[in-house]
Design a protein around this nucleic acid. Structure first.
Lengths: 230, 230
DNA sequence: GAGTGGTCTAGACCACGGG
DNA sequence: CCGTGGTCTAGACCACTCG
């Protein structure tokens, strides 16, 4: 009977790493040797070590073998839910208010961010997400109608642009930048906080292949924290 | 000849998801059917779909099968390097200055965060990380000497606590909280910014099993952005 | 050139959990 | 109960890369 799973192999490897039985900077045995020692197939060892390498706890290279990194670059995984789910996941009642919806020329920084041609117009959205009727997050978004033509017909008073896009243009690529900025006068009004208050911000751009879909800046009300585990 | 890899299966699955050939909320074929259709082994399909599920693009449950989620919770991966590598990775010269090193009772919020007994003393570190001789990040750290006794002998003028711990107590578990806060007068002095300036902050706690190792708050100089891709 | 991880296969058994 | 994904195996070939 085989009580050996890839998880148990992984746990044993992790133990050896943490106990420095496999010291930082050192090579560890080959997959084949480990498989024999632990009494399982090489594929099982492979699965276990591959997962550890993806988390940054091991470095693997063909021919060079597997080693414990001296300065591990750990990987943390962030969940990116739609804002409604973020609020509801905290056990709070979600609310939403559309503030502005317009079609206009974007400012230069948005145009260059999305690599648009000079005269390309975008749909501009400003919306407030609420938790227990308190301001939670201000969404300042630009949408490329060429990438998602149906968006022009979306009823943004019933569903947030955030949610609409996740449901209709999801599964695409993009990048995030997290930072802090001072609340502008307008943001302070909407978020009901002092002007200049420190706000946690998420800037995101989304692409369908080479076609830009949307750029958004989310400004969270003071006190918001984004969490991750490792 | 087998031109079929799990990556190609994954790409095909992704295409069907994005093209809505597999619509949101809908079931997709079983692994066995897909394997037959695509002409590969079930294990290959499994690997491809498992990876998509880990990224949040599919939901898999035994017996219920695999479906495309209506509101996908995307997963983004963050790299957590040591600060020196973060700076050097930007092509800048790294510098470091130890500001304070003390052994004392932690404030209540740190004590409860690390679940310490009332009279447990910790080592308190305050240090500044520099990029091109400009303030980059302020490190405010508490270390549990019971968890890492050797830390008491570390020469923190030569190596940052951040780096020492990564090299000597790495591979442990922990959690992160990202947020924004206003620069205190002291932080403003060290970071050379106005008091009250919005700072991007990372709070982290690290554990070896049930034993708390360290709690740290990193305050980044104004303008810092943390990036991730999806 | 040769060693190491990367991957595929065909088959098998198992565990979870929906109906 | 029993279908579906989760996993293990033994063997094979391949691709990368170090020496």
């Amino acid at each position: 009977m085989t009580a050996i799973t890839w998880q148990s192999v992984q746990a044993e490897a992790l133990r050896r790493i943490r106990s420095r039985e496999w010291p930082p900077g050192g090579q560890i045995p080959h997959e084949a040797d480990l498989a024999e020692e632990l009494g399982c197939a090489r594929a099982t060892v492979n699965r276990a070590l591959r997962d550890l390498a993806e988390a940054g706890l091991l470095e693997r290279r063909r021919k060079a073998g597997t080693r414990v990194p001296l300065n591990p670059v750990r990987k943390a995984t962030l969940d990116i839910p739609i804002i409604r789910q973020d609020v509801e996941g905290r056990g709070q009642a979600y609310g939403y208010r559309l503030i502005l919806r317009d079609t206009t020329l974007p400012p230069p920084e948005i145009r260059s961010l999305l690599k648009l041609k000079p005269k390309q117009t975008l749909i501009h959205i400003l919306a407030l997400h609420l938790a227990e009727a308190m301001p939670f997050c201000l969404e300042d978004r630009w949408v490329n109608p060429d990438a998602v033509p149906e968006f022009a017909d979306a009823d943004l008073s019933a569903i947030s642009a955030n949610e609409w896009l996740v449901q209709n243009a999801a599964f695409s690529a993009g990048d995030f930048a997290f930072g802090a900025s001072a609340a502008t006068a307008e943001a302070a009004t909407h978020l009901n906080c002092p002007s200049g208050a420190p706000l946690f911000t998420v800037e995101r751009t989304t692409w369908a292949a080479a076609l830009p879909i949307t750029a958004v800046c989310l400004s969270y009300a003071p006190g918001y924290k984004m969490r991750a585990e490792i």
